[in-house]
């Protein structure tokens, strides 16, 4: 009988937990901020010159990796503590035509996406990573960071990088060059881009521009803004390449503040196929359901205290009072 009671208790508590962990509607995706700033990367405009890789390094005091004869061409292939921005190449078969999936090639920018509802901010136990309440830029504060690398593991884009060979390591990721704002400058990668493939500006405007481009007919000639979408500066007029019908970052993982356009499907270029629901919201919903206001733990604790009190009396513990006068 008693064993059955015990199992009943266990099943009961499991069922209680199952209902809370099952009801995941409490926190939806965080909404886009009206004042958000970000980048629009249009792969069909990128010529692979990697000027942005070098500019990013210079703007962020990183070591350049350039051959002596070509001091403008940084060789860096992967994100690292010394590279917050890289251009990757997609190649297929005989890479003859740019922006074509088969027998073609394309370029892809890799840097922090400044997620609308970032995993890295949600998981950081000590608020070293924060999302700015106005601009939505995801920033890092090394003085708060404990180096647990939960952000490194949880970022769906594998962006935050950590120095494993340094006794005083830090997390390294793009912070949208917000340190340049006080000098009236903006993201170095967008600033330097000759074609406007990387474009800086308010996300709302970048999104409208992205939609304009995807609605154009392939072959049509249009002007592409350069550097800052609000700067009224244009690159050369150019024929529109056929885009895949998707603005990457509009919905992916709850949306991002770096938007992407491409002629080659995004998954082929190594971008993850994410749920529209942000991982942060799924995880925080469970956490909040169980712990919001610490109500549930307090109730359970009260119950446990009562039961433990009665039961420690029932069968006195290891060294009961009446034993004390040895």
């Amino acid at each position: 009988m008693k064993r059955r009671d015990f199992l009943k208790g266990v099943v009961g508590s499991c069922a209680a937990m199952a209902t809370v962990s099952g009801s995941v509607e409490a926190r939806g995706n965080n909404p886009r901020l009206p004042g958000a700033v970000g980048l629009l990367f249009d792969s069909t405009l990128c010529v692979g010159c990697k000027a942005c890789v070098t500019a990013c390094k210079q703007a962020n005091d990183k070591v350049l990796d350039v051959p002596a004869d070509k001091p403008y061409l940084d060789r860096t292939m992967h994100l690292s503590p010394d590279a917050l921005n890289v251009i990757k190449m997609y190649k297929n078969g005989k890479p003859e035509v740019k922006d074509r999936e088969v027998d073609g090639f394309a370029f892809q920018k890799q840097s922090c996406m400044h997620c609308v509802d970032p995993s890295c901010v949600s998981v950081c136990p000590v608020q070293a990573l924060l999302k700015d309440g106005t601009t939505g830029v995801v920033t890092y504060d090394k003085d708060a960071c404990i180096g647990c690398r939960y952000c490194v593991a949880s970022c769906p884009f594998q962006i935050p990088k950590f120095n494993y060979d340094d006794p005083f390591p830090e997390i390294h990721k793009c912070q949208l060059c917000n340190h340049l704002w006080s000098e009236n400058k903006f993201s170095a990668c967008a600033d330097v881009c000759p074609t406007g493939a990387t474009l800086y500006g308010p996300v709302e405007k970048l999104m409208a521009e992205a939609k304009r481009r995807t609605s154009l007919n392939p072959g049509e000639v249009t002007r592409f803004p350069r550097r800052d979408i609000e700067g009224k500066e244009f690159g050369r007029e150019q024929k529109v390449v056929k885009y895949v019908d998707r603005i990457y970052g509009e919905k992916e993982g709850g949306g991002t503040q770096m938007l992407m356009l491409s002629g080659v499907p995004f998954d082929k270029q190594g971008l993850p196929d994410l749920h529209e629901r942000s991982s942060a919201s799924v995880s925080e919903t469970i956490q909040h359901t169980l712990y919001s206001g610490l109500v549930a733990p307090a109730v359970i604790l009260a119950g446990l205290v009562g039961v433990a009190r009665r039961n420690t009396k029932n069968h006195t513990d290891e060294s009961p009072e009446e034993d004390a006068h040895e």
Binding site: S122, V123, C124, P125, V126, Q127, K142, D143, A144, C145, I146, G147, C148, R149, Y150, F162, N163, F168, P169, E170, A280, S283, E284, Q287, H288, Y291
Partner: peptide, 27 residues
């Protein structure tokens, strides 16, 4: 295992902790 172990006390300091973080709760 913590890269910046000298800051470990931030885990239990109200000035730093992030109640949304599962790791904060575990720690």
């Amino acid at each position: 295992d913590l890269g910046r172990w000298w800051n470990f006390w931030h885990l239990i300091s109200p000035a730093y902790f992030n109640v949304n973080s599962v790791m904060f709760e575990v720690g």
